[in-house]
């Protein structure tokens, strides 16, 4: 159990984290989501004791992070932002080094290094110099380093940043596989990432938590509006005006004429399904309806809404 209470971090001239509190239960996969510069990395650096908090308390199972730094660091596997590595070392050499730093006894070191290389599918690369590996493999080396001592808690700062779509999926699956038996905290500014891997999401902006919950809960919380897409053959201006006056339509997001088709996107109250009403309206006016569809807001829209408002 990780408890964060009233955490604040001030750097010279600005507040990176502003009085945030949250709890993480054992076995959870938590996503920290936020735009760049929101305070995700700073939060993770404090959780791993790279920085100390300016104010507030952090406890891991009743152990305070300031008094028991080393004990807590032993429980954590950490993949820092941008995956820094000792690039001049060979993969195996580096994992050995990381293992020694985690106090793995000599007798078990070989076995643990083998296990980590196996999980991260690095067997074929173990004698290569890290600097010469591709980005995807470097990421695996970073993960293997975080896993070497079989930690209870994994903290991953943007683990899929800079990878191509295939590598993203591979790393994401790897995290899911590893995360079954561990507490995982990962940060990202990519929504689909967090949606795909996390049990719970904390959305952070400008150092504050502005929303939290499961991905589904967040969607429900914020879907007070729904979009409707329509394609009609008819006069643009008249259609525009008629639709604007219709009850339940909150605003017209865009309306444009392409060839002889009018393309319209509406935002409506999500409690009402306006499609039926709109179809009647269009037909009664003598226009031709080509297409109508309804789309609920994606997590993407919620994220954009939440982080832009403030």
């Amino acid at each position: 159990m990780i408890q964060v209470e009233n955490l604040t971090k001030k750097f010279e001239g600005f507040t990176a984290i502003d009085n945030i509190s949250f709890e993480i239960k054992p076995g959870e996969i938590i996503g920290l989501l936020g735009p760049n510069g929101a305070g995700k990395t700073t939060t993770l650096r404090i959780l791993t004791s790279y920085f100390n908090p300016s104010l507030g308390k952090i406890k891991y199972d009743e152990l305070d992070i300031i008094d028991n730094t080393i004990k807590i660091q032993q429980k954590i596997g950490y993949l820092p932002e941008n995956n820094p590595l000792y690039e001049e070392m060979k993969v195996k050499e580096y994992l050995n080094y990381a293992g020694q730093m985690h106090d793995i006894p000599k007798t078990e070191l070989k076995e643990k290094v083998n296990k980590a290389t196996e999980i991260c599918d690095l067997k074929s690369k173990q004698n290569q110099v890290i600097g010469k590996l591709s980005k995807g493999f470097k990421q695996r080396v970073g993960l293997a380093q975080a896993l070497i001592h079989d930690p209870e808690i994994l903290i991953l700062d943007e683990p899929t940043e800079g990878l191509d779509p295939n590598q993203r999926i591979e790393i994401r699956d790897l995290i899911k596989k590893i995360g079954q038996a561990k507490t995982v905290i990962l940060s990202s500014h990519v929504l689909s990432e967090v949606e795909a891997t996390c049990d719970r999401v904390l959305i952070i902006n400008q150092g504050k938590i502005i929303a939290s919950g499961t991905p589904d809960e967040l969607k429900k919380q914020a879907t007070s509006q729904t979009k409707i897409f329509i394609k009609i053959e008819g006069p643009l201006e008249k259609i525009n005006e008629t639709l604007k006056k219709t009850e339940g339509v909150e605003r017209i997001i865009s309306a444009k004429k392409e060839a002889n088709l009018v393309d319209i996107v509406l935002e409506t109250d999500s409690t009402l399904d306006l499609r039926k009403k709109l179809v009647h309206l269009i037909i009664n006016n003598g226009w031709e309806l080509y297409e109508i569809s309804r789309q609920e807001k994606s997590l993407e829209d919620i994220f954009v809404n939440l982080t832009k408002k403030i």
Binding site: I70, L85, M101
Partner: peptide
């Protein structure tokens, strides 16, 4: 420069 200090100082060493 390479930020490997972030590894070194988050490993359980003094």
């Amino acid at each position: 420069k390479l930020n490997t200090t972030e590894l070194l100082f988050t490993w359980p060493i003094k």
